[in-house]
Structures are given as structure tokens and as C-alpha cells.
């Protein structure tokens, strides 16, 4: 007999359907929460958890969604990005889900958010101590491509046997003259565990090192949760003669002119015309709002790319 389970479900005004607050039942949330606390206590170590089926497909963010569902509360402001953008369809879908089942306030502004769920990017704007990042992780095991078996990789982590990882990176150098891993670039956390930072570009790896924010990573299908606490050492693996470096572009963002942000390439026509724009849409539009304009900012045919829309549509709603 458990008195707590008889909690009243939240009836969401939009649908009239009844779900528990933030969709998950309380027992599942407690299980996820306990896993999160152990993950924080053992930075970079993958805690197994009994991931539940979510009403979205595995591979589409079910790990991140279970994390968000277990941490979000009425005081939070939630932001969801996919590829750095708030308006990609999967980001929209996940944000809508939480508006519906947790009645949570949402935002596109990085600085306003208390919880940011992401797939493949860390925002350009520096994170703060008040923020929690939630990452969607497809394959949490950084050693998986060198060793397919969980029974083996678990031993390798236990014994701190990370030789295969260095061998793999070094083979890259032998073959290509450089480390050919560009995203999901492995990191060493707190000097102990090799960890996959999820498929963020290696450009974002340095943002994890001694970050003021808490970073939680969730893999729903693989049923693992892991974490990087604030102010924790996160070093991208490298070699003395081949130090870690991030990608750079010769171009700047066509819209806001930023020379320091991660850029997406956009194909403009069949004749090979292309431009580069910030992958972080919030960062890009804040810059344009404050007067920074890139070489292509004036072009009218790029309105959709700019995310420009009539003010009332993006205004207060609900």
C-alpha cells in the first residue's frame, strides 16, 4: 500500500486527456531521479536505468524526454533544440509534448531557459549555474565502435582500459594525417571515465569543460543515464603531437556575420550557390536584433531561413 501513488493526475486544458504530471508515473520518475543522482556522483559513468517506452520512437529523444520529464517542475522554463534550432520538427514535437503534459513554460531564448533539451548542439551563448542541459543520446558507449559487446566495454571502463580508444584515434592519424572523428568526439571526464558527449560536433566539446551548468545525458533505447556536474574537467582525447582542435570556417554567418559560431551550410540553387548560417538559431536572431548583420542579411528570399514571422505569431500565446 503506497499512499503516494494516488496523486491526482494533471488534466491538461488543451486536450482534456488525463496523464500524470510530465507523463511518467511517479515510480518511474523516482527510478530515473535516483539514476540521475548516482550519475552526478560518478561523473561520466553510464548508469543503467529501466527506460520506459515513450510515445515517441526510440532514437528520437526518448532518453532526453525521460530525463526532462523527471526533472521539470512548474517553476522551470524549458527550451528544446535540435541541430541548434528551436523550430526543427522534432524539437517542435518534443516542446509541444511537454507543453501538453507538464504545462511548462517554454522559450526559445537560451538565457531564459532553466532546462534545455538538445540534440546535437550546445548553445553558443555561455551557460550559467542556473541551467541544466539535457542531451538526447543515441549510443552512450564511446567504446562501442571498437568493441560491440557491453560485457567487454563495461570491463574496460571498470579497469580504466582505454588503450583501444587511443589506438583508434591514432589509426586515424596514420591513415588521414589527422583525427577523423568530428562529432561524438570522446572526452575524459574528471580524469576517470571516457565518455561520449552525444553527437555534438567536436566544436562544442570545449563548452563542457568546467561548465557552470549541470549536464545530464540520457539514452532511452540503450537505457543509460550519465552526467557531467558543473565545474568538472572534461578533456577531449588527443595526442601531444596531434592536439585536439575544432573546426573553423573561412566564411562567416551570412545572416548575422558571426565568425565564431558553428555554421550550417545551406544550398541555395542548382548551380552550387551556397551560404553559411549559424546552426544556433536563437544566437543568430539575437545578434541580428542587436544590429549585427551578415553579408546576406538583406536578401528577401531568405526570410524562412531567418525565422522571420509576423510578431503576433511568435508572441504570447496561452
Amino acid at each position: 500500500m503506497i499512499a503516494q501513488e494516488n496523486a491526482a493526475p494533471v488534466s491538461t486544458a488543451a486536450t482534456g486527456e488525463e496523464y500524470n504530471f510530465a507523463y511518467l508515473d511517479e515510480q518511474t520518475k523516482r527510478m530515473v531521479r535516483r539514476a540521475v543522482l548516482k550519475a552526478v556522483a560518478i561523473p561520466g559513468y553510464q548508469v543503467p536505468f529501466a527506460g520506459r517506452e515513450m510515445p515517441m520512437p526510440y532514437g528520437w529523444g526518448t532518453g532526453g524526454i525521460q530525463l526532462s520529464a523527471s526533472i521539470l517542475g512548474p517553476d522551470d522554463v524549458f527550451k528544446v533544440i535540435d541541430q541548434g534550432a528551436d523550430d526543427t520538427t522534432n524539437a517542435v514535437s518534443i516542446r509541444k509534448f511537454f507543453e501538453r503534459v507538464a504545462d511548462v513554460e517554454t522559450t526559445e531564448r537560451t538565457s531564459e531557459a532553466t532546462v534545455i533539451q538538445t540534440r546535437h548542439r550546445i548553445p553558443e551563448e555561455p551557460l550559467t549555474e542556473e541551467q541544466i542541459m539535457v542531451y538526447q543520446v543515441p549510443i552512450p558507449e564511446p567504446l562501442r565502435w571498437m568493441e560491440a559487446r557491453e560485457t567487454e566495454t563495461r570491463k574496460m571502463h571498470a579497469l580504466e582500459e582505454y588503450g583501444v580508444m587511443h589506438v583508434k584515434l591514432y589509426e586515424d592519424i596514420a591513415r588521414h594525417g589527422r583525427i577523423a572523428t568530428n562529432y561524438m568526439y570522446p572526452v575524459m571526464v574528471n580524469g576517470r571515465y571516457v565518455m561520449s558527449p552525444s553527437p555534438i560536433p567536436k566544436f562544442d566539446n570545449p563548452k563542457l569543460d568546467r561548465s557552470p551548468a549541470l549536464h545530464l545525458l540520457g539514452a532511452g533505447r540503450e537505457k543509460r543515464i550519465y552526467a557531467v556536474p558543473p565545474y568538472t574537467d572534461v578533456k577531449s582525447l588527443d595526442f601531444e603531437d596531434h592536439p585536439f582542435e575544432v573546426e573553423t570556417w573561412d566564411e562567416c554567418c551570412g545572416l548575422c556575420g558571426s565568425e565564431t559560431s558553428y555554421l550550417d551550410e545551406v544550398i541555395l540553387d542548382d548551380a552550387g550557390g551556397r551560404m553559411f548560417v549559424c546552426s544556433d538559431t536563437d544566437y543568430c536572431s539575437r545578434r541580428r536584433e542587436s544590429g549585427h548583420l551578415g553579408p546576406m542579411a538583406a536578401r528577401e528570399d531568405l526570410d524562412e531561413l531567418k525565422g522571420d514571422r509576423p510578431a503576433q505569431e511568435g508572441g504570447h500565446n496561452g
Binding site: 491526482a8 520518475k29 540521475v36 543522482l37 556522483a41 549555474e129 556536474p229
Partner: peptide
Amino acid sequence: LQHPVLDSQRIFRAVLLTMSR
């Protein structure tokens, strides 16, 4: 707890805060 669902969330966040800081 008076409101088990929301109180649990709030308590958990407090524990998470202290555990991560």
C-alpha cells in the same frame, strides 16, 4: 507530502542541486 507529485519534484531538484554542487 501534501502534494506528492509536485513536492517530490521540488525535493528531488533540491537534492540534485546539492549533489551537483
